[in-house]
Design a protein around this nucleic acid. Structure first.
Lengths: 117, 117
DNA sequence: TGTTGACTTCTAGTTAACTCTAGGTTGTAT
DNA sequence: ATACAACCTAGAGTTAACTAGAAGTCAACA
């Protein structure tokens, strides 16, 4: 089944603007019908979900772009892609740890001031 | 002890540009010498550390601004300030949970693909 | 047939949070 | 006295990631 950009936007919860922007940035390149209109596939849905996950964990568009480029070059680029993901995982782990520490400090401050009220 | 903007920048690890920007946004308002030059106090150091913590946990400048405004109005605004912090704590907790979930998913993906290599 | 409504491209505008430039003044060291 | 660094203001420029506008094409429906 193929989807128009409008339908695909509804499915993925992204705006059509954003989808065209992502295409411009070469994150996701849909097919084109004879009349020039874009169409997106089922596979594009899981791909966009993955892009959203990378974004949600703070990976910048430029980095996702690199990943997308490798992906479009086929299975042989798997090692490089894994390298990107493994590095990103480390960054993410560090960020979580950092946030947890800041959470604790903030929590302490709140409790301290609450005890004085 | 008072600090010039340059010294204060070195101490806080912020650029002088950023400090002037923060002043413009009314996050931190240093004193002024007779000749117009800014000076920062010891108390400003811990205040800026706190601002940095709020920033590090994703609080936008506009929100920090609200907090700073209340703070400048004295002790009576403590309850409102606590409210901001408690809300922020909740947001932060949710963000950490979300990141942890995404971390797990990413980790699973990496392990899955690594097992096939 | 005509008028929506969804699509197209290209380009400009927006927002956050800085970051820098220009042009000028002040403080310190030789 | 003269450099020279550090300070001042006002305003412009930057970057990321969208977001929107203008002008036009095309298919479907009353």
């Amino acid at each position: 089944m193929n989807y128009s950009i409008g339908n695909f936007a509804a499915i993925t919860n992204l705006s059509v603007y954003t989808l065209r922007y992502y295409e411009n940035e070469e994150l996701i390149v849909p097919g084109r019908k004879a009349n020039g209109q874009r169409y997106y596939s089922e596979a594009d849905i899981s791909w966009i979900q993955f892009i959203k996950r990378l974004k949600a964990t703070g990976m910048p568009i430029k980095e996702i772009q690199k990943y997308a480029k490798l992906r479009s070059q086929g299975d042989l680029t798997m090692p490089q892609r894994m390298e990107i993901l493994v590095k990103h995982r480390a960054i993410l782990q560090a960020r979580i740890t950092d946030l947890q520490e800041n959470f604790t400090k903030l929590d302490e401050k709140i409790n301290y001031y609450k005890s004085k009220m």
